[in-house]
Amino acid sequence: MDNNTVIQVEGLTKMYGDFAAVDAITFDVKKGEIFGFLGANGAGKTTAMKMLIGISKPTAGKAQVAGFDVYKQAENIKKSIGYMSQKFALYDDLTVKENITFFGGIYGLSRKRIKEKIAILLEELGLEDVSDQLVGALPLGWKQKLSFSVSLIHDPKIVFLDEPTGGVDPITRRQFWEMIYKAAHQGTTVFVTTHYMDEAEYCDRVSIMVNGKIEALDTPKKLKAQFQVDNMNDVFLKLARG
């Protein structure tokens, strides 16, 4: 693994009984890249991601994340990554500030650093006015942006986003992608799953999963050329329909 590769996956498989939810996938992700992980619902994206972030044990195959093995060094991986789940997973009954403080705390940030982070994040997100409100009362778009910021609180090398823009309006989605770009620009590798094909265009490289297998993997430009279509939506439709 050269210095520039932050995720390296070879033949990674997850079986549920006889069913292969993830079927021997192989790929790697370079430092600072925005890597799009595409697929229909049920294609195995989330399962694959959960193996990479160390909360699900693979059945077979090899994988290294941030230089650590997913089998033996899951806890080390967790120090180097951020994760934002598909389902909103901050505490509804804590305020914006309290949520940031809590997650900063369990990632081991110092009190001083947490204070600084709160100030920076609130400003970036424009949430200063609601910083003492319960998160449960915020609109979904704001919650999502907050979750993203929280997943970056400990300045991870890689951030995993599982359908981060599900259910939010186009303007918020736009702002969200600006945040992703900014993070990537600062050197964070972004691993993002989505089923919005227009979002795929924003990625440096995308992989498309169908029934547990990676059927295509390249830059959006090359994929469009390969399948002779003008947008990623058509690439996806061609692949998904076989």
Partner: peptide, 12 residues
């Protein structure tokens, strides 16, 4: 409610 997963991806 799903928050446990968020805890489990932290190094705690």
């Amino acid at each position: 409610i799903g928050t446990l997963e968020q805890i489990n991806v932290t190094p705690i």
